[in-house]
């Protein structure tokens, strides 16, 4: 499998606070790579840097051979980012929101329509897409945003806590969506503090704590290495 994203020695400082102290990992084509760790571990900062929202203090990020510092626009063209607490424009209808976002990525109207059609299928919101996003429940908004992130079939989808705040049923549906897209060749980099969710979704994971990657590998390999029945125990033992 070809490497889509390579992160090497990534550091980020906010004043005197060192949020990332040299994070490194690789994401391959079509795989789901999970970053797991507690709140404040540095997961969101890592994802925000890769999605060009934050600038790194040090280190190197390359995506499909492009360097983040030199070609941030190449990242934006091929990457879709779903922030943890994202929202949609409240006065826009769901379908209009998808159309609005699709036009940034599509070269022409036909391509934009193709993206929107795909998003309609992914979201499963049906007729509710004709309503304003301000009337949606949290679960519906999350599905709309996930559909937005996946509709362009990005080379890399970055999903920060994709099931954050969702109930069990919605969480399951969202996980299925992510799995489905990965099977179609989209690389996914996701973060979650729900380690069981990451274990279910991810092909490989990195354990991150206080800005440092403690270990990485397939969930099975990590469980064997740390002699644990699940990733929560793996994480606890890795921290110790």
């Amino acid at each position: 499998m070809a490497v889509v994203l390579e992160v090497e020695g990534l550091k980020k400082k906010y004043g005197s606070l060192e949020a990332l102290k040299g994070v490194s990992f690789k994401v391959e084509e079509g795989e789901i790579f999970g970053l797991i760790g507690p709140n404040g571990a540095g997961k969101t900062t890592t994802l925000r840097i890769i999605s060009t929202l934050l600038t790194p203090s040090d280190g190197r990020v390359t995506f499909l051979g492009f360097d983040l510092k030199k070609n941030p626009e190449k990242f934006r063209e091929k990457i879709s980012y779903l922030p943890e607490e994202a929202g949609a424009y409240r006065n826009m209808k769901g379908i209009d929101y998808l159309n609005f976002m699709a036009k940034f990525y599509a070269g022409d109207e036909a391509k934009a329509s193709e993206y929107v059609e795909r998003a309609v299928t992914i979201s499963g919101l049906g007729e509710r897409l004709k309503d304003k996003a301000g009337t949606y429940s949290k679960g519906m908004t999350r599905k709309l945003l996930l559909a937005r992130a996946l509709m362009t079939r990005p080379a890399l989808a970055i999903l920060d806590e994709p099931t954050s705040g969702l109930d069990v049923i919605n969480s399951l549906e969202v996980r299925e969506m992510i799995k489905g897209f990965s099977r179609e060749g989209v690389a996914v980099l996701l973060s979650s503090h729900n380690m069981l969710e990451v274990e279910f979704l991810s092909d490989r994971v990195a354990l991150i704590d206080r800005g440092v990657v403690l270990d990485s590998g397939t969930p099975q390999a990590l469980k064997e290495k740390y002699q644990a029945s699940n990733l929560e125990i793996v994480f606890r033992r890795a921290v110790q």
Binding site: R48, S51, T52, L53, E73, R76, E77, I79, S80, Y81, L82, P83, E85, A86, G87, A88, Y89, R90, M101, F104, Y105, L145, R148
Partner: peptide, 14 residues
């Protein structure tokens, strides 16, 4: 407030 800025800043536009 609507948490749309982050998404907007990652779309391919300067």
């Amino acid at each position: 407030q609507n948490k749309t800025l982050e998404t907007l800043l990652t779309v391919p536009i300067s």
